[in-house]
C-alpha cells in the first residue's frame, strides 16, 4: 500500500481500480454452508433450482469459513451456539460480510420474551451488514438482502479511501509541523 500512498497523487485511476475490484468482489460472494434453524431451509430453497442464487455469483456455498466471504446466520442463536458463531466469524478472512436472516437473529423474534438462553439478535455477537426480517423470510426477501449486499460490496472503495486518507494525513502532518 505504501507504493500507492506515495506515488498516486491523482485519485482518478485509483477509483477505476477500485470499481474493478468492487465488481469482482460483488460478483463472487461466496457464502458459508451454515444452517442453524428454520431459516436454513429457506436459505437452501434459495440455492435450489427455483430461485437459483447462482445467477448472482453467490451460489457456491463453501463448507469452511476460511474460504467464504459471507456468513448468513439463518436461525436462532443461543448461548451455546453464540460462542461458535463468533468463532466462525473470527475465522473468516477480510473482507467479510454478515447477513442476519430471520426475526430471531434480527432481534430475538418469538423467543425474545421467555427465551432464557437465546441471544436477542446476532448483532450482539458479531457486526451485521444486512438484516433480513421475517419468520422465516421468504426466499425473495433473502435474495433482496443479497442484492443489497452486492451494492454495498461494489461501493467499497478500498484504494481510493486509502489514498485519500494518506493525502489527508500528509496535509495534517504538514500543518502540524
Amino acid at each position: 500500500m505504501g507504493v500507492l500512498n506515495n506515488s498516486l497523487p491523482d485519485i482518478g485511476p485509483v477509483r477505476a481500480v477500485d470499481s474493478a475490484i468492487g465488481w469482482g468482489r460483488k460478483s463472487s460472494i461466496w457464502p458459508m454452508t451454515f444452517g442453524i434453524a428454520c431459516c436454513a431451509i429457506e436459505m437452501m430453497a434459495v440455492y435450489a433450482a427455483t430461485f437459483d442464487l447462482d445467477r448472482f455469483g453467490a451460489g457456491v456455498p463453501r463448507a469452511t469459513p476460511r474460504q467464504s466471504d459471507l456468513i448468513i446466520v439463518p436461525g436462532t442463536v443461543n448461548a451455546k451456539m453464540a460462542v461458535r458463531v463468533k468463532r466462525l466469524y473470527d475465522q473468516m478472512s477480510e473482507p467479510r460480510y454478515v447477513i442476519a436472516m430471520g426475526a430471531c437473529v434480527c432481534g430475538g423474534g418469538p423467543y425474545v420474551k421467555w427465551g432464557y438462553n437465546t441471544v436477542k439478535g446476532v448483532h450482539k455477537i458479531i457486526p451485521v451488514d444486512i438484516f433480513v426480517p421475517g419468520c422465516p423470510p421468504r426466499p425473495e426477501a433473502l435474495m433482496d438482502g443479497i442484492l443489497k449486499l452486492r451494492e454495498k460490496v461494489g461501493r467499497n472503495q478500498v484504494f481510493a479511501r486509502q489514498a485519500q486518507t494518506a493525502a489527508d494525513m500528509d496535509g495534517r502532518y504538514a500543518a502540524a509541523k
Binding site: 460462542v83 463468533k86 425474545v112 432464557y116 441471544v119 436477542k120 450482539k124 455477537i125 458479531i126
Partner: peptide, 21 residues
C-alpha cells in the same frame, strides 16, 4: 422460581445488552 440470567459464558442474553464488539 428460576431467575433469568443476564449473560452466559461472555455471551449477552439481554435484549438491550451492549454488543460485544
Amino acid at each position: 422460581d428460576y431467575v433469568y440470567p443476564h449473560e452466559h459464558g461472555g455471551m449477552p442474553l439481554d435484549l438491550d445488552a451492549v454488543p460485544l464488539y
